[in-house]
Amino acid sequence: MMRLREVALYRIILMAVVGVLCLMDNMPVWAMGAAVPQLQPAQDKPCVRDPAWMRRNHPEFLRQKRDLTVREGVRVRNESLARCATCHQDRAQFCDRCHQYAGVDPNCFTCHNYVHTP
């Protein structure tokens, strides 16, 4: 009985250590106690969806649209990634700051250009 408990304790310690090491690798900024970044406000027009909804759902929104566009050829021009850049003009001030804060590293921009194309 005692041994089982010890094993469980060691296991928890090990998991905690591994967890801390993982976090240190790509530490989200919120973990260091930073304030929520104030993002650059969009240029005058309203967003294609409710901003609060977009804040939570844009990864799925873009991923779903990505698959639809690539595989089914559905192109909705005012909802493309390139259209984001018309209102949120600076990627560093918009996408990157929040991604850094949340500690996520989406790889959209390793290939895609964040430039508005008409």
Binding site: P46, D50, G73, R77
Partner: peptide, 21 residues
């Protein structure tokens, strides 16, 4: 209550906002 961005007119205005294969 949610306003959709007015369908923008791309430079070549003949292209509709949504197209599909």
């Amino acid at each position: 209550g949610i306003r959709l961005l007015a369908a923008p007119q791309p430079s070549s205005s003949s292209v509709p906002n949504k197209t599909e294969a």
